[in-house]
Design a protein around this nucleic acid. Structure first.
Length: 815
DNA sequence: ACGAGACTTGTTTTT
DNA sequence: CAAGTCTCGT
């Protein structure tokens, strides 16, 4: 499956090694070096601990920094760049610096600016793999068969395109969903695989064995559309470098230093990309520095290969490996809880995070129970207001959820409370219908060959151009191998269409011709406004009297406003295709709501982690599809969540959650049982609704040998369960209370874990249950029913109305 | 060609 | 439950 690795040209096989270039600005470098010799370390180096300083100052040769959560990873990266710049070893344009998100890139630019002063122009090669890929491709598009004004398709475009292809093959697009195939293609591209290279099994798995064919057809279609999908932004540069060694050499000469953030999240394609650029002839130092944390690898589902970390020393011989283990962010309790949790994973590289904070006033990690998600949101809202009264800033608080649908409940609650909040990465601005429509207009003006944009808006607003017209046009275009807009221009000269359709199309063509003419002469924001007005798109929403229409108009205004920061329509389009988030108002004091995934790299004073229930977190699908490693990735996600907190971390779980619109009774997440009692408080349950406090969480379901035999039967689950009970049988030592507390386990090997504390839950289930099978009981949500089975504290009840459910015994009363 | 209403369908995480 | 798709009547 790793195909593609072996044919990467290694540069130590190149016959004529280049000689090392002299420093670009010798004077400054010499001065800096002299300064260092006199022990006058530059300001930016002071305040680094020894390991950090080593990571910053080891400029020659490959360096791998294993940086635990909160150990100053970003600081090391930015300082390292500052160090390279101020010692004159390279110009900003000679440093390639890759981040995982655009947000991280932005932040890094800012921080470098602070360190170096704004004298240094923004680094042109600092960005995500994707944005740097685009930059490379725009320069060398012709080498991979594109024109440099190629379009970048988003997921939505891709799915529509694939649907067309599936239909064109005469396949049933119901039976073979385009969305699924889009996912498969994405997976292949993440592994760096061309249609020819995909495994036979994969190819056969879709559309009666036509998988490979469809993939190839898709790539062909992209080429004729002069378009790229996200995966191509990685693959095309790889292809380009492989087949054009001279171009590759140009970039070898250019990039003197390469830095990669979040290295644990790189996928195979990104890895190949990186290796191509980083390889150097023998004797020339490979100045590549990767920073990562295997415990924070949470993008396995997107093809990330944690193994890339393990391979590093192999692929870059002589690499210096530096561990950052001193945590500056969190209290000992937060760190202790996180460490104990993550210790349940196997196959870790093993870092030992430690902190010197031992403030007795620091609160433990709090675990709270709530009846349902509504109450959860209400209670979190209350806690936030309480903190606010104690003059904590809302900006310092965050709610981190597993899945974005959880956000809504909090939003609803905060709206009624009048609490400011900010959703990060939620339903994206640029994914809204009206924004996508508007963007399609702009795209088509800039890139007349963009058929997908054309099809999207020819008949929006309604112009009497229905399916039949579009199909005719489509066939006409295909037959002549020209874009649809061009086909439209031609076809209105013929009498192929009915007069009504012909008139409608005529207007569209005339409009676009006019707008294209204005592209160079009109200010882009004005042109954009003009396009929306003249096309009738604005009017369409003005006439719409539905509830959301005003909001959509507002969004369109916002869209135009956000264009002001760009020089041209084209520049704006590029930005949008890569950066799906709209910038938010930083000045407003507001609680952040976001997914755990998008929280990586951030930190907050107070963190709320709702929804710790089996099935949601760990997510059932991760368990089903990922098996054991799926579970471990979920656990890392939990680890990421907890370690975002500096001072307070409040975890919540509910007993009832609405899934697919119907209420389901849920069980507390197994991760709760994996938290150490020494660092965790199970909050006294409050008054609310009759009596959940008494029962439920006070008991561990893991007291029984196989408590999940009915509910969980997937193979992955069974393995995980097996593993878990092994761990529980071990004697878990405990040590704590030194000035420097070490938490977690390190070099000591997998069999001798030193994890303090014990499972949170106190065992009470050895006591006989207060219920017996057949008892008639009442449940707050489900009403009356009869107990049909009892396992420890869990009851299976046949409810009169709600059917059979499994609930914790604390939630029901005998009738 | 188009809208309204019935119907199915499915919700992890993202560049 | 909601969003998206499909079917039917106009």
């Amino acid at each position: 499956m790793m195909s593609g690795f072996d044919d990467i040209p290694f540069f130590d096989e190149e016959p004529a090694p280049r000689k090392q270039q002299p420093p670009a600005t010798g004077g400054i470098a010499a001065r800096a070096m002299a300064a260092r010799d006199r022990q006058q370390r530059p300001d930016y180096l002071s305040g680094l601990n020894p390991e950090q300083a080593e990571a910053v100052e080891s400029l020659d040769g490959p360096v791998l920094v294993l940086a635990g959560a909160g150990t100053g990873k970003t600081r090391v990266l930015t300082t390292r760049i500052a160090h390279i710049l101020s010692t004159g070893r390279a110009f900003p344009s000679q440093i390639l610096s890759v981040t995982f998100t655009n947000k991280a890139a932005r932040e890094m630019k800012e921080r470098i600016g602070v360190l170096v002063g704004h004298a240094v122009e923004g680094m042109p090669w600092l960005g995500t793999f994707h944005s740097i890929g685009v930059k490379l491709l725009r320069r060398h598009a012709e080498l991979v068969g594109l024109r440099s004004d190629f379009t970048i398709l988003d997921t939505d475009d891709v799915i529509r395109l694939i649907k067309q292809i599936i239909q064109a093959e005469g396949l049933d697009d119901k039976r073979w969903p385009a969305k699924q195939f889009a996912g498969m293609i994405d997976g292949w591209k993440n592994k760096g695989l061309d249609p020819a290279q995909i495994p036979e099994g994969d190819a056969r798995a879709f559309a009666n064995g036509k998988g490979r064919e469809l993939y190839a057809a898709y790539q062909n279609r992209l080429r004729t559309l002069n378009a790229c999908d996200f995966g191509d932004l990685l693959l095309h540069p790889i292809r380009m470098f492989r087949s054009n060694p001279d171009v590759l050499k140009e970039y070898h000469d250019k990039f003197r230093y390469i830095l990669v953030d979040e290295y644990q999240d790189t996928n195979t394609a990104q890895y190949m990309w990186l290796r191509l650029l980083a390889q150097r002839p023998k004797g020339v130092p490979q100045n590549v520095c990767c920073v990562g944390d295997d415990d924070q690898s949470i993008y396995g589902w997107r093809g990330a290969e944690v193994d890339n970390i393990l391979r590093f020393e192999k692929d870059f011989p002589g690499a210096k490996v530096i561990k950052l283990e001193r945590n500056y962010r969190s209290t000992e309790h937060i760190l202790g809880a996180a460490a104990h949790l993550i210790a349940h994973n196997e196959g870790r590289l093993g870092k030992t995070l430690f902190t010197e904070r031992t403030d007795p006033d620091d609160e433990k990690v709090q675990v709270h129970a709530a009846w349902d998600s509504e109450e959860e949101a209400r209670a979190v809202g209350e806690e936030i207001e309480q903190l606010q009264r104690k003059s904590h800033k809302l900006n310092d608080m965050a709610i981190l959820v597993r899945a974005s649908f959880q956000m809504r409940e909090f939003e609803d609650r905060f709206v009624t409370l009048g609490l400011n909040y900010r959703v990060i990465g939620g339903p994206r601005f640029y994914e809204r219908l009206e924004i996508r429509d508007a963007m399609a207009y702009f795209r088509l003006v800039c890139q007349p060959a963009d058929d997908l944009a054309f099809e999207r808006i020819v008949n929006t607003p309604k112009r009497g151009l229905g399916d039949t017209t579009i199909r005719t046009l489509h066939d006409y275009a295909r037959a002549r191998d020209i874009p649809m807009l061009a086909a439209a221009t031609d076809i209105i000269e013929t009498d192929e269409l009915k007069p009504k359709a012909r008139k409608g199309l005529f207007d569209v063509v005339a409009d676009f011709r006019r707008w294209q003419g204005l592209l160079e002469t009109t200010v882009h924001t004005e042109l954009a406004e003009q396009i929306l007005d003249e096309s009738g798109y604005t009017a369409m929403w003005q006439n719409d009297k539905s509830a959301e229409a005003p909001g959509r108009l507002e969004n369109l205004k916002e869209l135009i406003r956000s264009m002001e920061a760009f020089e041209s329509l084209r520049g704006f389009l590029e930005h949008v295709s890569l950066v799906m988030d709209a910038e938010q108002n930083e000045n407003l004091d507001a609680v952040s709501i976001m997914t755990l995934h998008s929280a990586k790299g951030l930190e907050f004073d107070t963190v709320f982690l709702p929804g710790w229930e089996e099935g949601l977190f760990p997510h059932q699908r991760a368990l089903d599809e990922g098996g054991r490693s799926g579970l471990e990735e979920e656990r890392r996600l939990a680890y990421v969540g907890i370690t975002r907190a500096k001072h307070r971390c409040h975890i919540w779980f509910v007993s009832n959650r609405r899934i697919h619109g119907l209420w389901q009774s849920t069980l507390p997440s197994r991760f709760l049982d994996e938290l150490p009692i020494t660092h965790v408080d199970v909050a006294e349950s409050e008054q609310s609704y009759g009596g959940y406090g008494r029962g439920g969480y006070g008991q561990s379901r893991f007291d029984k040998a196989d408590p999940f035999q009915n509910t969980y039967s997937t193979p992955g689950w069974k393995r995980a369960q097996q593993n878990r009970s092994d761990a529980t049988r071990d004697n878990w030592g405990s040590r704590s209370g030194h000035a420097v507390e070490r938490i977690g386990y390190g070099e000591s090997g997998p069999r001798s874990r030193t994890i303090d504390g014990e499972l949170v839950a106190k065992s009470t289930s050895t006591e006989p249950s207060r219920f017996t099978v057949g008892d008639r009981v009442f449940h707050m949500k489900f009403g009356n029913g009869n107990i049909s089975a009892i396992e420890g504290n869990k009851l299976t009840i046949d409810f009169d109305k709600a059917g059979q459910k499994r609930v914790l015994d604390g939630f029901v009363e005998k009738v």
